[in-house]
Simulated assay, not measured.
Amino acid sequence: MGVKKAILEKWMVAQKKHHLSDKHVQMARELGLNPDKLGKIDNHTQETWKAPLPQFIEEIYYKRFKREAPETVKPLKQIMAEQEKKKKEQKKAKEIRRKLRDENTDVSATDIID
Rank of each mutant, 00 (worst) to 15 (best):
D22I: 01
E71C: 06
D114V: 14
R29N: 01
E59Y: 12
R67V: 07
L33Y: 10
D114K: 14
I60L: 00
K94L: 12
I57G: 00
T45D: 06
E84A: 12
W11L: 00
D36G: 05
G2K: 14
K88A: 15
D106L: 15
L20W: 03
T72D: 10
I79L: 07
F65E: 01
I112H: 13
R101K: 15
K16W: 08
K63L: 08
L53R: 01
E58M: 08
Q90F: 10
E95L: 13
T110W: 15
H24V: 09
Q26V: 01
M27D: 00
E30M: 09
V73P: 00
P70H: 03
K88T: 14
K66T: 07
W11A: 01
R67A: 05
I113D: 13
Q15A: 06
K5W: 08
A6N: 10
L100I: 09
E89W: 04
K99H: 12
P35T: 07
K23H: 05
A109F: 11
K5M: 08
E82D: 13
D42A: 15
I112P: 02
E58L: 06
Q55A: 07
L20N: 00
R98G: 04
G32C: 01
I7H: 14
N34I: 05
R67W: 04
T72P: 01
Q90I: 09
Q83M: 07
E68H: 12
L53H: 02
T48F: 11
P54Y: 03
D22Q: 01
K10G: 02
I112G: 06
E68Y: 12
N104G: 12
V3R: 10
Y62N: 06
S21L: 07
A6Q: 14
E68K: 15
E103K: 12
D42E: 06
D22L: 00
P75I: 03
Y62Q: 09
Y62P: 00
K92S: 10
Q26W: 02
K66E: 09
S108P: 01
D111Q: 13
D36A: 11
E82I: 05
G32L: 00
A28F: 03
E95K: 13
E9W: 08
R98S: 10
H44D: 05
Q26R: 01
E59V: 13
M80C: 06
K37H: 11
K4L: 07
A51M: 11
N43G: 04
P35F: 04
D42V: 04
Y62F: 13
F56L: 08
R64P: 03
K4A: 11
K10T: 04
R98V: 08
K16Q: 12
I60Y: 00
L100H: 15
V107D: 10
T105G: 04
N43E: 11
L76Q: 03
T48A: 09
K86D: 08
D102I: 08
E68G: 09
K50H: 02
S108W: 13
Q46R: 09
I41E: 02
Q46L: 11
H44A: 03
K99I: 15
P35M: 03
K10S: 07
E68N: 12
E103N: 14
K66W: 05
N104H: 15
K37N: 10
